[in-house]
């Protein structure tokens, strides 16, 4: 199997410009096209361990990052994200190209894969059991997901829980974890081995850095897992650890609130969600210390045999 880290710059750039490059992320095959150097180097940094093809073949989605226009190219370099040639977003400054790619890919998947029930949630796995971390942005979900991924949990996604069919399997979609502002420093200080992609500054969300997914998560991206724990984390400065159970109905209502396509799936969405909260126990987790939160999750997942 060929990985992005194995190919020469010349081969990589050539396949990226002529439409032959395919990046395999979990179950999805992406055709990526770009002449923008920032994207080329960003992909190298973040996706070096991912399987690729440089000679074309089937793809699920065709993504392109291109310069915004000739004028913009010379005055102030901007990049545009396209899915199948259509650009849903406004251009961004070229130095934030990689963040634009990650957001564009999130948008592509969250607006397209209705074969799955999609919840806005981080997903990790340990002992063959799946954990959903569901929360509004700003509650420390991504930081906690990053911390777990840097320990011995397998990363499925920091944003998107993909649930498949009546068997209710979680589908891995291992991607870099998007960290904001102080979280970047928190993870860097705790883990010397943490690798990051290009830093995007002055975005609407502040400074963003993408923490590379651990190699093991990328290698095992075809291994699905059943959901067995739903946790609603909340980071509060100075709070002592609180772990309290949540009723299935309550959990379902909160997950609906965070679902991308609950209404698109109609009845199926309802029955999948009902099965999810029946199969997996739900908890609220409030914490100020990351180690406490990780210990609590280790205990919960071990107890859930």
């Amino acid at each position: 199997m060929l990985r992005l880290g194995d190919v020469s710059d010349a081969v990589f750039k050539h396949s990226l410009t002529d439409g032959m490059f395919r990046l395999q992320v979990g179950a999805f095959s992406l055709r990526i096209q770009s002449r923008v150097p920032e994207l080329q180097s960003g992909l190298r940094q973040v996706y070096g361990h991912y399987p690729i093809f440089t000679d074309g073949g089937f793809y699920d989605y065709d993504l392109e990052i291109r310069p915004a226009s000739v004028a913009r190219h010379w005055l102030r370099r901007n990049a545009v994200f396209c899915l199948s040639g259509q650009s849903p977003f406004l251009p961004m400054p070229a130095e934030n190209t990689h963040a634009l790619f990650e957001w564009g890919l999130n948008w592509t998947v969250s607006s397209s894969v209705h074969q799955y029930l999609m919840l806005h949630s981080a997903v990790l796995e340990k002992h063959g059991r799946g954990l959903l971390l569901s929360a509004y942005s700003g509650s420390g979900k991504s930081t906690l997901a990053a911390e777990l991924a840097m320990r011995d949990w397998r990363l499925f996604s920091d944003e998107l829980a993909l649930l498949d069919g009546p068997q209710l399997r979680l589908i891995p979609f291992p991607r870099p974890v998007s960290l904001k502002n102080q979280s970047i420093e928190v993870i860097t200080n705790r883990h010397q081995g943490a690798r990051f992609g290009p830093i995007a500054r002055d975005t609407q969300k502040g400074t963003i850095a993408h923490l590379c997914a651990p190699n093991d998560s990328v290698d095992r991206a075809h291994e699905t897992a059943p959901p067995s724990l739903i946790v609603f984390p909340k980071w509060t400065a100075g709070a002592s650890l609180r772990v309290s159970p949540l009723g299935a109905g309550q959990a379902a209502m909160r997950l609906i609130d965070q679902a991308f396509n609950y209404s698109v799936l109609g009845r199926l969405g309802f029955s999948m969600l009902a099965n999810l909260v029946t199969a997996a126990k739900a908890w609220e987790l409030e914490y100020s210390n990351l180690d406490d939160a990780v210990d609590a999750l280790d205990t919960l997942i071990a107890d859930d045999a």
Binding site: A68, N78, P88, F89, L90, P91, M92, P93, N96, L100, W103, G104, W107, T203, Q204, K205
Partner: peptide
């Protein structure tokens, strides 16, 4: 069309 518009992040 020619009045200046700033790009916006998604």
């Amino acid at each position: 069309a020619f009045s200046t518009k700033e790009p916006v992040t998604p």
